[in-house]
């Protein structure tokens, strides 16, 4: 091998000029604040007080903080309930969208509506829907003869309210992703299975589900990380109430940032990041492991 030759012409410069701006802002305004936040988790950093190194003091406080414990439990519970539901509803919706029918185009267009509406506005609409006295949610409940539910005022009601509103907003996204996965499954596999005499439930279990697996894993990863950082919907629907029952980790961190305790807020943010990282690694690992088993 000879010595390396660099492109003497101006092309290299052009390439750098084209690539650099795409990296510059994300590094400056995403990576840098994030890294600062991680470091700041080890600082005592409260408004109007001198900033100083605090080691793991924030984290020691974190471990004993009942509010954090509540937040963590709520967030994990929320993930555990909403992500499987989203996946199930998303799959159903995706299957509906794939069926050859004159209504297919309409369904595919309408599905984008909840996705496209700003989460803040969705939050407001659902707040109204959950209104105790004249919201349609309780109107439906009362039609069945059951007593009105205190949707946003009780901890169980608020949890359910958030899960349902979140489902409405996110199922379309899951469905769109899964639909792409469904469309990628070659038609002839179904034909073959049909010729082999498999019923349509059998075909679904034997062909659709296994082949959809990689896309499902992507959807799970996206949704889990998104559910982990849920903020806007809760901020509007319950502001974390009643009594902190629905305060997600992001909302808790936000409260401390706004309250001026940057150090502790940073520690909470770092925790969220670590959980997100863990989730990502876990989902990817499980996905790999599963596919190597087959």
């Amino acid at each position: 091998m000879g010595k390396r030759i660099s492109r003497a012409s101006s092309d290299t410069v052009w390439l750098a000029v084209l690539l650099m701006p795409a990296l510059l802002l994300p590094v400056a305004l995403i990576l840098m604040p994030a890294l600062c936040t991680f470091v700041n988790g080890c600082m005592q950093d409260v408004t109007f007080m001198p900033r100083r190194w605090a080691g793991l003091a924030n984290y020691a406080r974190l471990v004993q903080d009942p509010a954090l414990f509540h937040s963590l439990r709520f967030t994990l519970l929320f993930i555990a309930v909403s992500v499987p539901l989203e996946l199930a509803c998303g799959l159903l919706l995706a299957l509906l969208m794939q069926v050859q029918s004159p209504l297919r185009g309409m369904l595919r267009a309408l599905v984008l509506i909840p996705w496209a509406i700003p989460a803040a506005i969705a939050g407001r609409v659902w707040e109204l829907i959950y209104s105790y006295n004249w919201g349609p949610a309780n109107y439906l409940v009362k039609l069945t003869g059951a007593p009105a539910v205190n949707w946003l005022g009780s901890s169980t009601g608020a949890f359910l309210a958030i899960v349902i509103a979140d489902l409405w907003k996110t199922v379309p996204f899951v469905a769109i992703i899964l639909l792409a996965g469904l469309s990628a499954i070659p038609e002839h596999l179904y034909r073959q299975a049909e010729v082999d005499g498999a019923s349509f439930i059998r075909r679904f279990v034997a062909i659709t589900l296994p082949l959809l697996r990689p896309v499902m894993i992507v959807a799970i990863l996206f949704r889990t990380i998104d559910a982990l950082r849920i903020f806007d919907l809760i901020y509007i629907l319950t502001s974390g109430g009643p009594g902190g029952a629905t305060s997600s980790l992001s909302l808790l961190g936000y409260t401390y940032f706004v309250g001026g305790d940057f150090g502790y807020g940073s520690a909470i943010s770092t925790l969220i990041f670590l959980i997100a990282l863990l989730v990502a690694l876990l989902v990817v690992r499980i996905g790999r492991f599963g596919s190597s088993m087959r």
Partner: peptide, 21 residues
Amino acid sequence: LMILSLSMFPQICIAGYLYRI
């Protein structure tokens, strides 16, 4: 990979210092 992982960062991890910047 770096660009991909940046899109995974929870917003709250950025928000505090972003405000300061």
